[in-house]
Design a protein around this nucleic acid. Structure first.
Lengths: 146, 146
DNA sequence: TATAATTCTATCGCGCGCAATTTAAATGTT
DNA sequence: AACATTTAAATTGCGCGCGATAGAATTATA
């Protein structure tokens, strides 16, 4: 595929590329996260909370490009594990605020090692990773318009 | 992130980028595939069969970077819908061969329009899509080694 | 202050998606 | 032939992930 026409081969289609790559990455994380008792979506959710604690469910869902119907049970499981606390907003009783516990904050310490391991696994240079991130970001934003 | 060090911000990590982009693409496909009565993983599986009919379950699973425990029920649902037939191998009774029915082949006709729609949605140029595909492919292969 | 519309979360049903286990068939060994 | 080993697919249990819907709290409007 080096033309200006649309891809015809199944594997040249970006949906195939993203779909398969996404699962490969997910699976690669599993052994590392298993030691921490976390799943991959749980881990990604925590990385957002490590950066900004006390977020509303809606805010988290938006950053994850995810529906709250997916996020609510995930957060409940993290609460059961003792990594965070869900509480209703004081001013607005509809919203639920997520606050990390000490346990949830402690997990952050293991993040750098996991990241390093995964970056190594990609076999991509840091420049290529930046390039990939930029393309994925542009792609996401493209669909956001629709 | 324009340094030679590992990313520290959550959204700069490639796991976040691929994870969220994957779901965004999945969701974008849904309305188009709903008209065909297909899910996104079902559609991707069919694209592989349109290109090469009569494959074994193992072959398909490998191309999809997926476990057969995921693929088997998916294929059964496509069989129930009448798009394919699952049959035991003549020489080797352990393997299951997947053959498209006329119905399953007919679906191929609607593929180009869907692809065109999705490519437009990405807001990426065809050159950028090629670049993205190449990076995702390299990433996948990197993890394969492990 | 009713009451209507909106907003936020939670619930439900269905389809993935994986690891671990099981079943069945083919192959290898004695 | 009898047995163990390997290989391919299916089954099970759990956790996402979505759309559709419901329910509770807030805000807007009359």
């Amino acid at each position: 595929m080096t033309t200006d026409t649309l891809p015809t081969s199944a594997k040249d289609m970006f949906c195939y590329g993203i779909y398969t790559a996404s699962h490969v990455v997910n699976r690669a994380y599993i052994p590392h996260l298993k030691k921490l008792g976390l799943t991959y979506p749980q881990y990604i959710t925590l990385t957002l909370l490590w950066e900004q604690d006390g977020q509303k469910v809606t805010e988290l869902a938006k950053q994850l490009w995810m529906e709250t119907s997916t996020l609510t049970p995930l957060l409940k499981r993290l609460e059961t594990q003792g990594h965070l606390i869900r509480s209703r907003g004081k001013q607005d009783g509809r919203e639920v605020i997520i606050n990390l516990t000490t346990s949830g904050q402690e997990l952050k310490k293991s993040a750098p090692k996991v990241t390093a391991c995964m970056v190594k696994g990609t076999a991509l240079t840091l420049y290529e990773l930046e390039k990939l991130q930029a393309l994925l970001g542009k792609l996401r934003n493209g669909f956001e318009e629709i």
